[in-house]
Lab assay of single mutants.
Amino acid sequence: MLDDRARMEAAKKEKVEQILAEFQLQEEDLKKVMRRMQKEMDRGLRLETHEEASVKMLPTYVRSTPEGSEVGDFLSLDLGGTNFRVMLVKVGEGEEGQWSVKTKHQMYSIPEDAMTGTAEMLFDYISECISDFLDKHQMKHKKLPLGFTFSFPVRHEDIDKGILLNWTKGFKASGAEGNNVVGLLRDAIKRRGDFEMDVVAMVNDTVATMISCYYEDHQCEVGMIVGTGCNACYMEEMQNVELVEGDEGRMCVNTEWGAFGDSGELDEFLLEYDRLVDESSANPGQQLYEKLIGGKYMGELVRLVLLRLVDENLLFHGEASEQLRTRGAFETRFVSQVESDTGDRKQIYNILSTLGLRPSTTDCDIVRRACESVSTRAAHMCSAGLAGVINRMRESRSEDVMRITVGVDGSVYKLHPSFKERFHASVRRLTPSCEITFIESEEGSGRGAALVSAVACKKACMLGQ
């Protein structure tokens, strides 16, 4: 009897593995994704193909990295998701002549009506938060230079001027797309009239992360975010950046690689679950690469896999709870928690219980395998993109072996128990001629924006502006 049951459990697990095998990517698959990513990057950089390229390769006008001589107080704003952060950054000489960066910050959550109302409502709310922060720190009387981390696709015309191309991540505030974001912020500050600010720089969160990590390690020339969304930036040779005049030196390019796949480059790798996630998203047909990796989508992918296993009578005796059938019910943090389970399955059992399920031991094991399959594919897909960037940098610099540091931020990278190990191992397999160091950014977005502002202020002083 026991043997029969054991055989049935083994057969069930084997069927589960057959279904989950769809998520496995072979090294040849990853090399294919990497080569296609490089081709799209090239198209994004070139003037004649930029418009139709899915990977936009947006110039950021960040050319210099901090040298350690900029000092002063800077205000930093960070808008990239449902939370908005205001930070005071003091850049100065530390002990023994070292450079020191001290920060104080406060988080504000953005109400739904500000995210989806008008641009005026959104930026009025942001300036209200700045006003509140300055009151708390008794700094209303000071006109501070301000660095703005704005983590949406922007076409820069200068370091302090950028046109919002399109909202992502659930934002829909009308009247912002096609307009200068810094102008919208300046107008809102003017409307309030109770404080003055000098907006000197606007950067993407990947750029802010790279600059913040450069402060720790001067070989950091790539910034990457794996959180709600997924994106990367890197220092490109100016001669390859056709959208900006000049051939000397390097400029940081914001790849906006989340949109890779929007022209069909990933079609052969998309599964039924991916198509369902895409169809029910706020932007169907867009940001397809990001939807395979980002935390906004990972939990939902797992939920759809679990429903398939229920329908195949391989999980929960073929019956799903009402909660499990509800879109968004299986949160991405559950994926991390399930994979963090120590082996007694308590954590998995508790999560499934909150979803109205009474799982068996085998159910718990199957749910864990589903989570591992989805998150491992995410790590491997992400590795193909980064390997594409790094191999490109090595080739354009004609280096036999390139040493490089990548600064990384984002909740999936930082909080998932195995993502970074799987990701690092896969990147290294795909970049055999590179020695890569990964560092995690601390308060990256805010500190990085302030350091970019410090560079901009120093330049302005040198130019006598």
Rank of each mutant, 00 (worst) to 15 (best):
M298W: 03
S336I: 01
P59E: 01
L79R: 03
S100F: 04
F152C: 03
G72H: 08
G147D: 05
L146D: 00
H380V: 12
F334S: 11
E319W: 12
L314K: 08
E272S: 10
E48A: 11
V226L: 07
F334M: 15
I351C: 10
G178F: 03
C457V: 08
H424Y: 07
V338G: 06
P153M: 01
E279V: 14
G162V: 02
Y273E: 07
N179D: 04
Y125P: 02
A320R: 14
G261D: 06
S151V: 07
M381D: 01
D132V: 03
L415S: 07
C461Y: 12
R403W: 12
S383W: 00
L47D: 04
R394N: 11
E28K: 09
E312T: 13
R345N: 08
Q287R: 12
M210V: 01
E421C: 12
F23A: 05
S340C: 06
R303H: 03
L276K: 06
L307I: 10
A10I: 10
K291L: 04
G249P: 05
M251L: 02
R325C: 12
V367S: 10
E9S: 14
K296C: 10
Q138Y: 05
H156G: 01
V182E: 02
M57S: 06
A449W: 00
G68H: 15
E242Q: 03
F316A: 13
K169I: 01
E268W: 11
E14N: 09
D205C: 00
A384Y: 04
A449S: 06
R186M: 06
N254T: 01
K172A: 10
R377E: 01
D3C: 11
E322T: 09
V91L: 15
S212H: 06
E157M: 09
D29F: 14
E14T: 08
R325N: 12
V253Q: 05
I110Q: 01
E112A: 10
S109V: 07
G258A: 01
E9I: 09
L88K: 12
V241T: 05
S54T: 15
L306R: 05
F260K: 09
V389T: 08
D363R: 04
A456P: 13
G407L: 04
E272D: 08
D400V: 12
C461T: 12
S396P: 12
G356S: 13
S383D: 01
A460R: 15
G356E: 12
L144W: 05
S280P: 10
S396D: 08
R186C: 01
N179C: 09
E372D: 05
C371L: 02
H141W: 14
D217Y: 08
Q24W: 12
K136Y: 02
S353Q: 10
C230A: 13
G446E: 02
R7G: 13
S396W: 05
L463M: 08
E443T: 03
F334C: 04
P153I: 01
E28C: 08
G175D: 05
G407T: 10
M235S: 09
E290K: 08
E339H: 08
V55C: 09
K90G: 12
T60P: 03
S151W: 03
K15G: 13
N83Y: 03
G446R: 01
G343P: 11
Y125S: 04
K172F: 01
L355M: 07
V91H: 02
D160F: 01
R7T: 07
F152N: 04
S353C: 06
Q26T: 07
S426T: 10
G294H: 04
Y413D: 02
M197H: 00
R155W: 06
F316M: 08
Q219W: 10
V305T: 15
E331H: 07
C252Y: 05
H105R: 08
D365R: 12
F269Q: 05
N204P: 04
D158V: 00
I189F: 02
S353P: 08
F330N: 12
F438R: 04
A450E: 02
Y108T: 02
E157L: 13
K32A: 14
D262Q: 07
V62R: 03
D267S: 10
A173V: 03
L77A: 05
Q323W: 06
V253T: 04
K15E: 13
Y297W: 07
G223I: 03
S127F: 07
Q18N: 09
S321T: 14
R7F: 09
G97F: 07
T431K: 02
A6M: 12
G328D: 06
E399C: 12
S453Y: 05
G356C: 04
A21F: 06
V455G: 15
C382I: 08
T82N: 06
D344H: 08
Y108C: 03
K136M: 12
L20Y: 03
D311V: 09
E157F: 09
K31G: 06
A456E: 15
S340H: 11
D42W: 13
S383G: 13
A460V: 15
S127P: 04
T228V: 00
C434Q: 04
R325D: 11
Y61F: 11
Q239M: 07
L75H: 02
V305G: 11
G175P: 02
L288M: 15
F171A: 01
A425F: 06
E268P: 11
S426F: 07
N283V: 10
C129Q: 04
G444T: 11
R192T: 12
F152K: 02
I19F: 14
A329Y: 10
G448R: 00
V199N: 01
G261Y: 02
E268V: 13
L352I: 08
L386A: 11
D400E: 10
V89W: 02
K190P: 05
Q239H: 14
T354Y: 14
S263W: 08
Y234A: 00
P111Y: 05
Y61S: 05
E290S: 04
A387K: 03
L288V: 13
G178D: 06
A460Q: 15
E22A: 06
M41E: 06
D344F: 06
L266S: 13
A6R: 13
L307S: 11
Y273T: 15
D135G: 05
A119V: 04
Q24C: 10
V200Q: 00
G223W: 05
G444P: 08
T376W: 10
H218S: 14
R192D: 05
L146R: 04
D198V: 08
D132H: 08
L266P: 10
L45Y: 01
G261T: 07
V367E: 00
H424D: 04
R429N: 12
K414W: 08
A282S: 14
Y297P: 13
Y349P: 12
L79T: 05
T118A: 02
D341R: 09
R63Y: 14
G295R: 01
E395T: 14
G223A: 14
Y413I: 07
M8V: 07
G388N: 05
R358K: 11
G299P: 13
M37S: 01
S360L: 12
F269T: 03
G117I: 01
R85Y: 06
R345L: 13
G72Q: 06
L134P: 01
D341I: 09
L164V: 01
L271E: 02
S64I: 15
S383H: 02
W99E: 13
